[in-house]
Every structure is written in C-alpha cells, then in structure tokens.
Amino acid sequence: MSNLLTIFLAGILTENMILSKFLGICPFLGVSKKVNTAFSMSLAVIVVMLISTLVTYPIYAYILVPAGREYLQTIVFILIIAALVQFIEMALKRYMPPLYNALGIYLPLITTNCAVLGITLLHFTKELNYLEAIFNALGAGVGFMVAMVLFAGVRQRIESADIPKVLQGLPITLISAAIVALSFLGFAGIVG
C-alpha cells in the first residue's frame, strides 16, 4: 500500500510530467492562460491517461511481449490512444453533454499529447505491475494538473504586472516556466 502511495506522490512531485520530464509542454504553454481552462484540460488529461493505461498495459503484456515485438509499443500505443480519445469524445457527447462541453475542445488536443503517450511507455521502463501502473498514471495526471493550474495562476499574475517591453508575451512566460520548474526541483529526493 505504501508502495502505491509512493508511486502516486512521485508522479505528482519528483517525477512531474511537465516540470521534470518535460513532456506535454505544448498544453503547458498553450492552454495555461486561465486557471479554469487549465483545470478542464488537466481533467481531460487525467481521464485519458488513466483509461489509456488501463487499455495499453494488457495489450503490451499479453500481445506484444508473447509475440516478442515489444518495439512496436510506440506505434501501437499511438493507434490505441487516438482511437480511445475519439471513443471517449463520442461517449461523452452522447451520455454526458455538460462534461463534453467542459472538456470538448481539449479532448482532440490530447489525442497526440506526448505526456499521455509518455506515461503509457514509462510504465514499462520502470517495470511496474498493473496496479502500480494505474497509480503511476493517476499520479502523473494529478501532477500534470498541479503544474498546469500553478502555472496558469502565475500567468494570470504576470498579466497584470508591469513587464519590460522586450520580455512581454512569450519570453516572460518561458522564464516563469523555468522558475516554476526550478521550484519543483526542490522536491527531489523526498519520495521515490
């Protein structure tokens, strides 16, 4: 049990997808202008990470490994995640329209998100079992949300700050992203 908790916390703090693995940088810079959009985007990421882990892990363990074709994981996982996201989108549109409206535009963006593909591949380099992989995915998803929401908060503050003209826009965003990432370096060693 403590092992699972460790994996979960490590996913949020020390092995944060965005701030220490540098995966999923595109939404980190693209969808972090407002706290609530960052929040909905991250919710969608958590859902997709969890479901794609649930699906891709058995396929890897019971199809690719027995066939001795582990190297196919990237292309197979891309296929599965893309189809899965499409499926989730359809299901949400049909059964949960309010949730679809909240996540709707972010779901297609996640189809090709490197953080989602990254987490499904990283389970195997870390040699986790199925249950551990699920917690790892959950932790990574929550970590993604923490990074997104924190950074969106920082950006909202920046918007009202008096910034030198040369740094306005993207430069100050990248500098503050670096500072937020540095602050997460402080967690190194506390878990995992």
Binding site: A67, L79, A83, F87
Partner: peptide
C-alpha cells in the same frame, strides 16, 4: 510479417469499433 499483422489487426479492430 508478424509486426504487420499485429498492427493491422489492431488498427482494423479499432476502426470497426469506432
């Protein structure tokens, strides 16, 4: 042959499912 079969079978299944 085997990789081609694996990828195409998964692809077709997903396509039909979708």
């Amino acid at each position: 042959v085997l990789p081609i079969i694996i990828v195409s079978v998964i692809g077709i299944l997903l396509g039909v499912g979708l």
